[in-house]
Design a protein around this nucleic acid. Sequence first.
DNA 1: CTGGGAATTGAACAGATGTTCAGTTATATT
DNA 2: AATATAACTGAACATCTGTTCAATTCCCAG
Lengths: 195, 195
Amino acid sequence: MGRKTGSHSEITGPKIRLAALKLFARHGFAAVSMRQIALDVGVQAGALYLYTPDKQSLLFGLMQDHMTGLLAAWATQPQPANPVDQLRHFTEFHILYHLDRPDAVFVSYMELRNLTPENFAIIEGLRRSYEDELEAILKRGQTTDVFSLPDTKIATLALIAMLTGVNTWYRQSGRLSRNKVNAIYWDMVRKAVAA
Amino acid sequence: MGRKTGSHSEITGPKIRLAALKLFARHGFAAVSMRQIALDVGVQAGALYLYTPDKQSLLFGLMQDHMTGLLAAWATQPQPANPVDQLRHFTEFHILYHLDRPDAVFVSYMELRNLTPENFAIIEGLRRSYEDELEAILKRGQTTDVFSLPDTKIATLALIAMLTGVNTWYRQSGRLSRNKVNAIYWDMVRKAVAA
DNA sequence: CTGGGAATTGAACAGATGTTCAGTTATATT
DNA sequence: AATATAACTGAACATCTGTTCAATTCCCAG
C-alpha cells in the first residue's frame, strides 16, 4: 500500500492537528498515543511523522498556535478611550475567544508540565504577554483613580483565573446565553476592581 | 530477596501515597509509571499492589481523601453570624487550605479526566458539595441584601476559580505573605459580590 | 527459640509505546 | 505517455506499560 486517493498535505495536516487537539483535551497528552491520533485521522501512525518531527513538537505547536492566535486577535481589537471600557472589552473578548476554543484552551492550560523546559519557557512568555495586556489596563485605571487595587499583578491573575473558569462549566445547551454569561462576569469584574 | 529490614505497612503505605501524589502532580497521572513511584519509595513495583488494587484506585484514593478532607475541615470551622463574615471566613479558609496542599489540589483539579466514570461521579459529587457551601453563603447574603448577584451559582464557580488560582502563582519565597494574599483576595471578593 | 503471618523481591506476562524506513501508490509536470 | 515527486503503508525496532505470583526474608507472639 502507498499513497491514498485524494490525499493532500493541506488536508491531512490540519486533520492531524485537530485530532490531536481533541484527543489531548479529552484524555491528556501522555494518555494519547500516536496510533490513536492516526486512527482518528484515518491514517497509519508513521504518516504523522510527515507532519511533525515528534509528539512533543505536535503538542508545542498546538499550544504555540493557540497563544499567538490569542495575542494576535487581541492586537486587532479596537481600544476604547477609558480604562473601564477597556476592561469591559477585555472581559468580553476573553470570555468569547476562550468559549470558542475549549480544546485549545484546555490543552494550553493543562499540558504545560508535558512541555520540555525550552518549549515551556516560550509558552510561558506568551502567556505573560497576554497577562501584561490586562495588567496595563488595570494600571491605567489605577492611576486615574477609577480602579482601586492593592496589587495589579495579583488582580490580573485573579481576574484571568476567574474568566477562564467559564470554560469549565459553560455548555452550549445550558440555561445561559453567551451574552448573559458576559453580563454576569462583567458585573463581578467591574465591582471587584472598583474604586 | 524477601521482606526488607524495618519494613511496616504503616510506613510504606503513606510513603507510596505521598510519592504518587508528588509525581502525579509533577508529571501527570498517565505520564507516571508504577515503577517510577516504586523507585521514589525505594521498593519494587510489585510491592505497590499490597497497598492498592491498581493504579486507578491509587489516583482515586488520593483525590477522594483530598475532597473529604477539605469538606471535613470546613465542617469544623465556626460559622460567623452574618453572611459577609461568613464569606470572609470562607475566602481565608479556602486560600490557606489550598496553599497548604498544592500537590493534592493540583491532582484533584487536573486528573479528573483520568478517572473512570464511576470514580469521576463520586469526586464530582464531593466537589459539588463544597461549592454548595459557598453558594449557601452567597444566597443568605442575597436575601438579606448585603450581596447583589445576578446568579449565585455562577458567582460561586467564579469565586472558587479565582481563589483556587492562587495556587498557580503563589511561591513561599515570593514577595507576598499568606496574610497579605488573603487580604488582597478578600478585597476583591468582598467588592465583587457587594450590593 | 520457634512458628506463623507480614512485607517484599524478582522474574515473567502480553501488549502498548514513539519512531524509523524501504517499498508502494497517487498526483502533478512535462 | 513518461517521469518525478508527494503521500502513505506496513512491518520492524527496542523499550516501557500495568499487573501477577511463587519464592524469600523479616518481624513478632507464645
